[in-house]
Nucleic acid binder design. Structure first.
Lengths: 105, 105
DNA sequence: TTCGTAGTTCGAGAACCTTCGTACTACGAT
DNA sequence: ATCGTAGTACGAAGGTTCTCGAACTACGAA
């Protein structure tokens, strides 16, 4: 795992596995988070996307996305900025993310 | 569900949901099956792709793929022909399948 | 008709996932 | 220094998934 300056671990490009990415995206809540991140097209405070779940569940889902390599998370004061790893995913799996984001929903 | 002549149910295009497709593809055994189906590029008897699992587990995985809309299965004598729904998936999610099939593994 | 082959169904166990509440840490503002 | 806010860690409950073996069905061949 790459250690970021802030000590939150993220998988490097060669550690990302397609099965984990697909599993991360297969959950409705996580897919919704990813769609919002893609739509806003900028890093965003985790809590700013509202969802019918508790704080701890949100943390769990964000961790799943981060560990799969779908997002980066880094601290910013008392908050955390979550960013879609769009370029990394496009490099590894060209077409995959767009195919998912453009899907009917 | 569309009823095929052979009475094995398959989801129609508008019944296919991205979450289920992603979940179906997130399992290593199912992903391997799909890759083999794509490589052979023709319908194939279920049993001809060898895997370190029992018959009933294979049935379970093929059912998961079929119900998600990833493959079609239809009887042929005492056997069953499984086919990747490549055109359907490309229509619904352009780029997704290629992105997955071209992924390193 | 009898047998073998291909696959399904069912039930059960283990492992895993999702969700939550509670307790905790860390930072910024007052 | 104290408080509030943002988020994490942990444990537990409930649900789902994966895997298997055993019993079953369906078709074709001998």
């Amino acid at each position: 795992m790459d250690r970021m300056p802030e000590d939150i671990p993220h998988p490097s490009l060669d550690e990302i596995r397609i099965e984990r990415v697909l599993h991360a995206l297969a959950d409705p809540i996580r897919l919704h988070l990813v769609r919002e991140l893609a739509r806003l097209d900028t890093g965003v405070a985790c809590g700013s996307i509202d969802l019918p779940i508790t704080k701890s569940t949100r943390t769990h889902h964000l961790r799943t996305l981060r560990e799969a390599g779908v997002v980066t998370i880094h601290p910013a004061g008392t908050s955390r900025i979550t960013t879609l790893r769009r370029a990394d995913l496009d490099t590894l799996y060209p077409g995959l993310l767009d195919g998912i984001l453009n899907a009917p929903h």
